[in-house]
Design a protein around this nucleic acid. Structure first.
Length: 921
RNA sequence: GCGAGGGUAACCAAGUGGUCAACGGUGAUCGACUCAAGAUCGAUUCGCGCAGGCGUUCGCGGGUUCAAAUCCCUCCCCUCGCACCA
């Protein structure tokens, strides 16, 4: 097998380098990999499915371009190399034991570039081993200087078009690493969201006591503040003004654009019973509460007992001890289903005893949810819906009452991989791609409407993503990448530098030969947009590149896994419409499902992976390919299980053996040969249609299993001792080609072995030969096989050793009824119609019984079969008579064939069209 | 929570009103071949049945229809995404 693979690989070495030609083009691309680790079988499918499609269209005579490159920009490898450098057990285990990186290479991984170089080489090697028909001349990495020039050109356009804006932005930030942190950098709190709180500024003496709230509109109903008496608060000068807040809050605020200077400590208990004031609620006292967390918000809480269950119950607890009797909840929101004091209702309905009840969180959600979705402020507070009042009051407070915004996580603890506590930091001078721009969105949506999406169900998700996208922070301080042309302190973020590179592929092999300093934006303007300026001398070389770009672009299909819909796949549409003219916009996308390994999600970090290279070594490239494209359609999730893969290998072996056996086939052509070839035409059509629709699994069902099933029947029908005839040889030529896109190694070998010149990879795709389709013959065989099945099932039940089997075909009058029933629209009225006929009426009950039986029968048959039966006027008696030898061989008993009308046996009466009576005795 | 997709026999999976007890594949069981194992071939694989049939199934429950896995409603469960990250 290795031998066979190597022979094919050397024959293919430069075969798939494609250049513009007279042929129609087909350009497909896949999201390029980020080579930070070894390829597993999930990656394998991502690249093998497009390869099957590429090979298919190549055989259909298209000039196919399937390029590949490597995405090495971004931060992950930097973290990886740091972890390896510091001797992190987990990282070293992953790379040394799972990815099998040799020790000397691993030692060099302290340099991040070495990691991506190592794995991109490995990717290329393994991809080649899998038989991917990639044009490797076009390969590049995203840190190549020429590519950086391309990115600079792209961003120059985005910048000039006003798509890139500067702004401030809250991010998760690790003070220890001095860096923003993404989900994968977190030890704890990986789903933490940043919430935008409004600080309500209460006055206390000369200072502010700010409370953080998501519900600014409830300020009207504040009856008191809560302070934790056992916490030590601080007095701090925040932007020059004195605030009383928790120590943690002071620290947090310092990351959020505030200058904070702590001046003294204030024990919480000293604040109790102090009086504070706010214009919206007047003077209120400070009360003690143990539930106040100094690490949440400012460490100070405003209390709205009418609408917040926590506040209500905390107040009730205090009052039950006889304290603060003068405080009463102040209602301000009206909600259907609740009384004046929703918090009170909810607490009492749930029978809550005190504030330690575990149901309090759910209760809070319930009340907040109801108020947000259905609540309205009382008339004296403006009468607005809560949904709107929230923003109105917040705006008012910020404008007039000194309120500010404070960002905070929605979970308690967020911890960086380095162990540091993560905070919210406001980043300044951050650049944003303005995906929120409605005009830009509309442009993308408009283009999407005309795109070919596979499977069609993903359209809704794309539409929603376009709608939902907000501005995207597109620059970074850390990582590999290209610098922003007009602000070189920033690097272009790695998703943003991978949006129009499909255009780069079309001329990548030329670009790599040009010194990067010559690749000015003006040059790219000419190459990609056809814009000529005096700054560029249009050489023949440039002219040729321009033509090559125009030949290939736009791409026909982009392939990627479905988790990229909400970013990459949609981003690249935004960038295309922003930069390229209508004639160069993407035509289609194919979205993949995810991969499972033995039923569990594949994940490198959890060690649940099967390396692609190991799979190829163990099972052979063709087996891996056939399994990956055949076990599910591309957009469905697939599950890699060794036992199933093993049986795939056996299937390929069976194919191989069958082709070998045909060498013994004769040259004559019998009816069953004609049948086999007739059937084959349908399989050709169905395989072709399936591949046109990217249904690799369906294609395999037709091209492999359906053909195999025919062969089974064919061999059964051959006379004893026959090894088959000419049809087998014709079939093999077609069969090898139908399977070539899926199992190219085996096919390449067999193609040569069966005496064909040239590579099967470039052989012409089989086309259906209508003249070979013989519906009458197919119908006869169908009748025969159905009857054989019936005989077998009867034999199984009755368990006697028969001495003779008689097949009685239905008499002509029953066929008339059958035809009448089949032609009738109203199957219930047909019985009356039939009985109008004198000859039928004379048959009496038998005729009406037969009619009823025909109705049932017709419902059971495929409609196609019925229409063919009606047109073909098949001679059943003849079919069975001709097949008598076969039937006698099958059942090893004498077989009689007769017209049921001529039999006196009681069972003969049950004969129906296409369902002869069978008498076994 | 929100958005998108999905739940079919031991497993994977086809099937969107009568072709459906439900294609195909896998696994399992039996049989043939073999000294044996493997491979290969044949049969069976919801229940019942000594005549090709009948009964009950397609996440749960309800409804529409002569007829529902397929259409409608309630609920339950799974997968993906929810952003600065590949």
């Amino acid at each position: 097998m290795r031998q066979l693979e190597e022979t094919a690989l050397s024959a293919w070495e430069h075969a798939f380098e494609s250049n513009p030609s007279q042929k129609e083009k087909f350009y497909l691309t896949v999201a390029y990999p980020y080579p930070s680790g070894a390829m597993h079988v999930g990656h394998g499918r991502t690249y093998i499915v497009p390869d099957v499609i590429a090979r298919f269209w190549r055989m259909r005579g298209r000039e196919v371009l399937y390029p590949m490159a490597f995405h090495v920009t971004g931060a992950p490898v930097i973290g990886i190399s740091k972890r390896i450098a510091r001797g992190d057990e987990k990282a070293i285990h992953l790379y040394r034991d799972l990815y099998k990186v040799p020790p000397d290479v691993l030692a060099q991984f302290v340099n991040p570039l070495t990691i991506v170089r190592h794995f991109s080489e490995e990717y290329r090697r393994v991809m080649t081993e899998c038989g991917l028909s990639i044009d490797w001349r076009r390969r590049f990495t995203t840190v190549d200087p020429q590519y950086s020039k391309f990115i600079e050109w792209q961003w120059k356009h985005l910048g000039e078009a006003g798509r890139v804006l500067k702004g401030a932005h809250p991010v998760r930030y690790c003070p220890q690493c001095e860096n923003p942190v993404g989900d994968h950098d977190l030890l704890e709190g990986d789903k933490a969201e940043i919430l935008r709180f409004v600080l309500i500024m209460f006055r206390w003496k000369d200072a502010f006591i700010p409370t953080a709230t998501l519900r600014a509109e409830t300020t009207h109903g504040v009856t008191n503040l809560w302070v934790n008496p056992s916490t030590t608060y601080v007095r701090a000068l925040v932007d020059g003004k004195p605030w009383i807040i928790s120590r943690q809050a002071a620290e947090k605020l310092s990351y959020q654009d505030h200058e904070v200077r702590v001046t003294e400590e204030i024990p919480g208990y000293t604040l109790i019973d102090q009086e504070v004031s706010h214009p919206l609620c007047g003077k209120v006292p400070i009360l003690p509460a143990g539930f106040v967390d100094p690490d949440m918000g400012t460490g100070m809480v405003m209390s709205v007992p009418a609408h917040a269950p926590f506040d209500y119950i905390a107040l009730r607890d205090l009052q039950s001890q006889g304290k603060y009797q003068r405080i009463h909840p102040i209602p301000l929101i009206k909600v259907p289903g609740y009384g004046e004091l929703p918090a009170k209702d909810a607490v009492e309905r749930a029978g809550i005893r005190d504030q330690t009840d575990p149901r309090m969180d759910a209760l809070t959600q319930e009340v907040y949810g109801a108020e947000f979705s259905q609540g309205k402020l009382l008339e004296k507070y403006g009468g607005e819906t809560v949904r709107m009042a929230r923003d109105t009051v917040a705006a008012l407070a910020m404008e007039k009452y000194d309120s500010l915004v404070m960002y905070e996580f929605d979970v308690q603890s967020v911890v960086c991989r380095c162990g540091g506590q993560v905070v919210v930091k406001i980043l300044h001078d951050q650049w944003f791609l303005q995906y929120s721009d409605p005009a830009w969105k509309a442009q993308v949506a408009g283009h999407l409407a005309g795109m070919n999406l596979v499977p069609p169900e993903v359209r809704a998700e794309f539409e929603r993503t376009i709608d939902w996208l907000k501005d995207w922070a597109c620059t970074r301080k850390v990582g590999l990448g290209t610098r922003l042309p007009w602000d070189p302190a920033w690097l272009i973020e790695p998703l943003s530098d991978s949006t129009v590179y499909m255009a780069y592929y079309t001329i990548a092999h030329h670009l790599s030969q040009i010194p990067p300093e010559e690749l000015s934006p003006d040059v790219f303007d000419y190459l990609f947009l056809g814009k000529e300026t005096e700054n560029v001398v249009i050489s023949d070389k440039l002219r040729q590149m321009r033509e090559e770009f125009l030949f290939w672009y736009p791409y026909d299909f982009r392939f990627s896994a479905k988790d990229l819909i909400s970013n990459h796949l949609t981003f690249q549409l935004f960038h295309h419409v922003a930069i390229f003219p209508p004639g160069c916009l993407p035509r289609g996308m194919v979205v993949f499902g995810m991969g499972l390994l033995n039923g569990a999600k594949m994940s490198s970090s959890k060690g649940n992976v099967f390396l692609l290279e190991d799979a190829v070594r163990e099972f052979g490239a063709d087996t891996v390919r056939m399994f990956l494209v055949g076990s599910a359609e591309p957009w469905q999730d697939f599950d890699w299980r060794n036992e199933l893969v093993n049986s795939t290998r056996k299937q390929i072996e069976r194919f191989w053996n069958t082709v070998q056996e045909t060498r013994a086939a004769g040259m004559s052509e019998n009816e069953i040969d004609l049948w086999l070839l007739s059937r084959l035409q349908t399989h050709i059509v169905k395989t072709t249609e399936a591949l046109e629709r990217f249904q690799t699994r369906q294609a395999l069902q037709e091209a492999f299993f359906a053909v195999e099933a025919d062969l089974k029947w064919y061999k059964r029908r051959l006379p004893t001792g026959s090894a088959g005839d000419k049809a087998l040889k014709d079939l093999c030529s077609v069969w090898i080609r139908l399977l070539a896109p899926i199992i190219p190694f085996t096919s390449e070998h067999l193609w040569k072995e069966t005496g064909n010149a040239g590579l099967v990879s470039f052989a012409s795709w089989p086309e259906e030969d209508r003249s070979r389709i013989n519906p009458g013959l197919e119908l006869s065989e169908e009748l025969l096989s159905r009857t054989v099945e019936d005989v077998e099932s009867i034999q199984k039940i009755i368990q006697i050793t028969p001495s003779v089997i008689t097949i009685c075909v239905a008499p002509s009058w029953k066929r008339e009824i059958f035809a009448a029933v089949a032609g009738a629209i109203d199957k219930n009225a047909v019985i009356r119609e039939i009985m109008k006929d004198d000859a039928m009426r004379r048959r009496g009950k038998e005729a009406s019984d037969v009619t009823r039986q025909c109705i049932t029968l017709i419902h059971k048959f495929p409609p196609q079969l019925i229409s063919q039966y009606l047109q073909g006027s098949i001679d059943e008696l003849m079919v069975f008579s001709k097949a008598r030898d076969f039937l006698e061989k099958e059942f090893a008993v004498r077989v009689n064939v007769t017209d049921a009308g001529e039999s006196t046996h009681a069972r003969a009466r049950s004969a129906l069209p296409f369902k002869p009576a069978i008498i076994i005795e």
